[in-house]
Amino acid sequence: MKTYEVPQEIKDANALEEKLSLLKHIGRSFSVYRVDCGSCNGCEIEIFAAITPMWDPERFGFKLVANPRHADILLCTGPVTRQMYYPLLRAYEATPDPKLVVALGACGSTGGIFYDAYSVLSGVDKIIPVDVYIPGCPPHPASIIYGLTTALGVMDQKLQKESHIEENEIPSLIKESLIGNTLFERDLLVEAKKLMSYVFGRKLYDKYLDALIKSGDVKNPKATKISVTEAIQTEEDPRYAECMGILHNEIYTHYIACQEEDKISLHRVQWGKK
């Protein structure tokens, strides 16, 4: 599909030198017009979070205006739906030259999660020239403030393109198993992630293994039962406490031959009491 071609006079008026001289002049006060090109509203909410007194961007002259004719900066969100194509162009042409265009959010930068949907043009930069990209879905208010201050030259850009070509030897990534079978650790991690998601599951996994090691003899179900029970009782967070018990009953007993009485009866152990 053939999209908008920027008219020559707008192109000339928006050359890089013009933009840089604009930045020099608006350094302390700039008006931002916000164009919602079909965003899911997540980005809008974060923009409004960013203009609350918590972040107070008027400290460096950031002001939202209601009309593109008053704006220096166009803040575009959303993946540009077909319906918002012409309104975006109208706002772009109405903004006085030279202007800066900021693409906000994953959608604005590249189309984000919607990039291959049938009804979007995926990214503001497919239609009009974009100067600053602020990734995030939605960007944190601090990221928005950072993006705008980067645009103004107050802060420096941190991200650079990274390319790795030289290949080093990989370190040995697999640790020796506690009980001599890495499948035990694998199942333990899978179950821990299933119980508590990947962030807390990893913590749970570490806590449980610590408890096992504390028993002194990891292959002895009697000793491990005592040490895991103790870990459950001293654990402050009831979620970890209960899940450690479940891990012990379901995974450990599967790999070490245990009697029924070696399982921890969870309703008899008290946890989370402080």
Binding site: P135, P139, S143, Y146, Q157, K158, L159, K161, E162
Partner: peptide, 14 residues
């Protein structure tokens, strides 16, 4: 969280 890039989009790529 400071991810914004100016003018050149390829800085976003790894």
């Amino acid at each position: 969280f400071e991810l914004a890039v100016k003018f050149d989009k390829s800085a976003l790529i790894q």
